[in-house]
Structure formats: C-alpha cells, structure tokens
Computed example of a mutant assay.
Amino acid sequence: MAWCVVSQTDQRRNMLIDILMSTSSCNRETILNIGDDDLAEQLYQCLKGRRYIIVMDDIQNVNAWDDIKRCLPDDRIGSRILFTSRNMDVAIMASYGGSNYPLRFLVEDESWNLLKWKVFNKEPCPPELVDVGKKIARNCGGLPITIVMIASVLKLLEKKRSLWMEVAENITSYISKETNVYMNMLEQSYNDLPMHLKPCFHYLGLFEKGREVPVQKLIMLWHAEGFIGKEECMKSKNVAQKYLTDLINRNMLLVSKRSSDGRIKSCTIHGAMHDMCLRLAKKDNFMKAIKE
C-alpha cells in the first residue's frame, strides 16, 4: 500500500517518489538520486505483477492523476487507486466511471468517540468532563478535522471543567490561536476557488452562522451585487445556478433542503467555513462585521 498527499507535492516527480518509497525496498537516498524518466520506469517495474492499493490524498486537479497513471501497471489482479478530494467534480473526472463515496458529517456519538480517543487514547475520560466534552464535540459540527484539531488543543490544557467549558464556547478562536494547520487547510479550499466564485463565497458571511438560506434569495442577491458573469449560450439564472453547484461540489456550501424533484431549496455554510469567510472577507476588504 502506498500513500501520496497530492496537495503537498503537486509535482509528478514528488508523487512518484512518495509512491516508490512505500512500495520499493530501496532506501530514500537511492530513490532521490534516480532521474525523472528512470523513476517512472522503476515504479512501473516495482508494481508489475503485484496487487497494490495507492491512496492519492487531497487531489485538487485531475492533471495530477494524468501525470502518473501510465506509471501504474494494470494487470487486472485487483489493484486499486483511491482518490480523496474536496472537489466532487475533480473526483468524478479522476475516477471516470469508478465509484464515488461522498463523506457525511459525523453524528454526535461518533464526534464524541473521536474526540475522546484523540485526547485520552485508551484512558477513560474523567466523569466531570464528559458532559462538557460532548458539548465540545457537538460544537465541532461533525467535521472530523475540527474535532482532531480541537483535541490537540485539549491535550495541552489542564483537565479542568472550567477550561474545557471555555473551549466549548470558543471552538474556532482556540483552534486558530493554537495551530495554523487547521486554518491553512481550510483556506486552501478558498485559494483554489476561481476568481468569479470568491465574492459569491464572501457574501455568505452576511448571513447568520447556521442559518438556512433560500437558494432563490441568495441567487437574487448575487445578481443584485453584480457577481454573476456572462457565459456564452447560457442564461443568467443558469450561470448563477452553476456557481451555486460549484460551491456545493467544492464543499464550501452545504445543501439543507431539496424539493420533491431534487432541486436545491435552501443551503447553509458550516460554522468553521463561516468563521473563515468573515475573516477573509475582512482581509480582502469585502466587508466588515460590526458587533454591538
């Protein structure tokens, strides 16, 4: 089995090195000294006749897969390639006919079990921290990365109920204060947005966190602000619907309700994304939230 984090490498040579280091008996120094063309051949020969599974984690552009697929032999013996992506369109293009499995948010019990395991490992959680711990897990909104990051904060704190309660009320501020990894990962999704979608995403910060936003109202407001561009052979309302779908496929926007015929009636934005939206909107001089 081999694991390649595509978003961190994003270069053919680096991806080949990551995979070869997981599948070959050669040491790291030997692999790093192999030339580009020989590297591809070495990987192909290493995998030839073997059943393998390769995980390409966080693929953001189908070109990353196109760059290396010829280096992976298909001997029809059960080998598999698994992609993870924050963009459904990229996942569909990369799999071209394979199965896609959109991940759901964790339910409360799953969130609490993950948080508890990350903080205490196999040790039991002190009884006085159970209720506040469940509140923290619930306030993470079912997003695994949020739970993992807040667990790293809790591990550094004294196991006092008052300290945990403070964290429960200020999830995002604690994460952003204690670690930049979380914010960098979220902002990468924003940075990958095409320019025409960035103001549409910024605008979501105007709505109250957790509020369901009617799609027709949102599209009407985007139109009023002049965010909807012109595309050849497409009506303006269809362009706006395309923008909405693109934000949903990139997991920047969540579907709340659908009509009986499957059309999206309302949407919302995850709490962590909402906080990031406000921060980036202020940074980009798009808007500024004023609290009384």
Rank of each mutant, 00 (worst) to 15 (best):
M1V: 11
C4Y: 01
V6D: 02
V6E: 02
T9G: 05
L16C: 05
M21F: 09
T23G: 02
N27E: 06
R28C: 13
D38S: 12
L39E: 01
E41P: 00
Y44R: 12
C46N: 14
G49I: 01
I53M: 14
I54M: 00
D58R: 04
Q60I: 07
N61M: 03
N61K: 06
V62E: 15
V62P: 00
N63P: 00
N63S: 11
W65I: 02
I68T: 01
C71S: 15
L72R: 04
D74E: 12
D74P: 01
I77G: 08
I77P: 00
I77V: 09
S79Q: 08
L82M: 13
R86A: 09
N87S: 06
N87P: 01
M88G: 00
A91F: 00
A91I: 02
M93W: 02
A94W: 00
Y101Q: 05
P102V: 05
V119Y: 02
V119P: 04
F120Y: 15
N121Y: 07
P124T: 08
C125D: 06
L129A: 04
V130E: 08
V130S: 01
G133F: 07
K134E: 06
K135L: 14
I136K: 03
A137N: 07
G142H: 06
P144S: 09
V148Y: 05
V148C: 07
I150Y: 02
V153L: 02
L154W: 03
K155W: 00
E158H: 10
K159I: 05
M165K: 14
E166H: 13
E166S: 12
Y174R: 04
K177G: 11
E178K: 14
T179L: 06
V181I: 15
Y182A: 15
L186V: 10
S189D: 13
P194I: 12
P194D: 13
K198W: 04
P199T: 08
C200T: 12
L206S: 08
E208T: 14
E208R: 13
K209D: 13
K209H: 07
G210H: 08
E212A: 15
V213M: 13
K217A: 11
I219L: 15
M220L: 13
L221I: 14
W222N: 07
H223Y: 12
H223E: 14
G229N: 08
K230T: 14
E232D: 10
E232A: 09
K235C: 07
K237N: 11
A240K: 05
A240M: 07
A240G: 11
K242C: 09
L244F: 04
L247D: 04
N249S: 08
N251R: 13
L253S: 09
L254S: 13
L254I: 14
V255R: 03
K257M: 12
D261L: 10
K265S: 13
C267N: 02
T268P: 03
I269H: 03
H270S: 02
D275C: 11
C277Q: 14
R279N: 12
R279C: 10
F286S: 10
F286K: 10
K288Y: 09
I290E: 11
K291T: 13
E292A: 15
